[in-house]
């Protein structure tokens, strides 16, 4: 079997393009979440395989908020302020579309990596 992709690439590079749908999916399933909670949940689900850095997570969350996909809510937790992110109505629609696109992408990857299984 021949492998064409990802030689010498690290995992974070591979996951980078999928971060957006991953976050949107998590928010769809969990309602509202804060930054740290997202990083921990991703780490837990992928058993430590995918660790989102803060430098990647927050700019992405801000970008999604700018695009109207996410909305924020501030809440006082003890002596600090916590910012919760949740999907907007448009964001929920976008999530379904993003998941479809991700499935197509995964299928295309299968075709390349493992044509027999695909």
């Amino acid at each position: 079997m021949e492998t064409y992709v990802c030689l010498g690439m690290n995992k974070s590079t591979l996951y980078k393009g999928c971060l957006e749908p991953i976050i949107m999916r998590l928010l769809k399933d969990n309602g509202r979440m804060y930054g740290y909670q997202i990083t921990q949940m991703v780490k837990e689900i992928t058993k430590g395989e995918l660790q989102i850095t803060e430098g990647a997570l927050y700019p992405l969350l801000h970008k999604l908020e700018e695009q109207g996909i996410l909305e924020t809510e501030l809440e006082n937790v003890g002596n600090r302020v916590r910012k919760y992110y949740s999907l907007t109505k448009a964001g929920k629609k976008q999530t379904s579309m993003a998941m479809e696109e991700l499935k197509i992408f995964m299928h295309s990857l299968q075709l390349i990596v493992n044509p027999k299984l695909a």
Partner: peptide, 21 residues
Amino acid sequence: EFTDAEFTAIVKSERRKLTHK
């Protein structure tokens, strides 16, 4: 665990978001 570039990226993205808003 944080690099200076990460802090800068967060401030930049927040500024862009606020300007857009």
